[in-house]
Design a protein around this nucleic acid. Sequence first.
DNA 1: ACTAAAGGTGTATTAAAAACACTATAAATT
DNA 2: AATTTATAGTGTTTTTAATACACCTTTAGT
Lengths: 259, 259
Amino acid sequence: MIENDVLIQHPLREPMVKDTNPYISVDCVIFGFDFEKLNVLLLERNLSDGDGNLIFSDHSLVGHHIKINESLDAAAARVLFETTGLSNIYLEQFFVFGSPDRLKKERAQLWLKSIGRDPEKRVVTVGYFSLVNTNAVHVSYTQRHACWCNINEVGELAFDHNQILDKGLEALRLKIKSEPIAFELLPQKFSLSQLQKLYEVVLGIEIDKRNFRKKAIQANYIVPLNEKQKDVAHKPAQLFMFSRDIYEATKKENFNFSL
Amino acid sequence: MIENDVLIQHPLREPMVKDTNPYISVDCVIFGFDFEKLNVLLLERNLSDGDGNLIFSDHSLVGHHIKINESLDAAAARVLFETTGLSNIYLEQFFVFGSPDRLKKERAQLWLKSIGRDPEKRVVTVGYFSLVNTNAVHVSYTQRHACWCNINEVGELAFDHNQILDKGLEALRLKIKSEPIAFELLPQKFSLSQLQKLYEVVLGIEIDKRNFRKKAIQANYIVPLNEKQKDVAHKPAQLFMFSRDIYEATKKENFNFSL
DNA sequence: ACTAAAGGTGTATTAAAAACACTATAAATT
DNA sequence: AATTTATAGTGTTTTTAATACACCTTTAGT
């Protein structure tokens, strides 16, 4: 419940902690791709004094304490659903953050006091990253004060959330190099240029178009459709879809290692 | 404190919980290589009734609850030290296990009751794996009832420890393919055959000797020494050492991805 | 009809992985 | 002293994958 929407709307109200585990939370790094850049979903965090004067304003990742009898995965899925309205979304645990001083920054302490939490209580948080197509998230549905922020333009975040974000991005980069999770960030039907751009912004590299397409077309689980882009002011691209069935049926383990 | 030695020796005594966090523990998968197979360090767990009759006997990984103001990494290092007497050892967090029913197996419940823990209390545990040279651990030093068990001959373990072990092994395999952690399992001076055997047993594959040696010799951070094996009943092997300095200075990021 | 913007295509070079079999050296045995 | 046993050590060819690179095509907008 650290960064709960309810809390943000009612910062002085005691959080409903009775059915939550006070020691353990989950934080979600929700990545979204908008065909140009990689974004992360952040919440605004505003702290005001009794007279309504703003003490500070910054951003945080999305997170909650877990419920008493809830699995970690379920807690992360719940947080994601409450924030975006999406379910059945790719979610992966990537690290646990358990430093005893992770909530000891001045703003964190002020914030915890203001929402009625014990600022001394130690909370271990489990980091998840999740992948969504930015366009699939209707910002109207997302909780208020949520926004997509370009991964390269994130300022100083609440708590240890910069560290969580960095580690989540690292986990995403590692994973996208070896498993077909890129498709989770794209609509079902996509062009190869979109796929290429996605790899480029996630990995932070440039890729040669012809070599990339050669590789993609060789992968038989990237299936060409009898369909083209519409209403674009240039030659419309062939659309493709990802077939998990074909991927699972034909994948081979890659035993390479680099010493 | 779940699988603490003290508890094993005094199964009916109330654990000293006053300075430990009751919600969070660490469990260590301690891997060891003995030049033939990959082993994991297990503790014996014996439960007896009031008359000293054995109710059951099995094995567990090594783990403790974290202390109130201890970081997760520090807790794992402490557990490792208490078990093996080793410090400054490679340790890596690989996953958190937080299912609400992870301590609900019948034996787990009996065990928790017998050591005076609330069997209903939920514990989230953080998995670490660690790499040691089997020969560096003097079993005389290790706590009583600790033993090395071949990774392929592990039976049913306590709690959810089979799951933790599997995930730890998976993490080790992933990591050893991309970073030079193999050397943590070897003595400082080693032969290329030993290194090859290590890769073979960790990854569960066979590797061609000539191709392996070519690759190893190309890696300039695997440094030949002016020294050979002694007292072996065959041609003595050239010894090598791993230079982290050279590795760090010459490594290049590998941007390959497999779609 | 022309322009702007992105889509789409093939070949040659280089680098890395894989396949493969025999000789060398030390200690132990006869 | 000769033989056996056990592991060390060594190169070349083939196959596969990665890289580098430039021009024409199609659509909408002007």
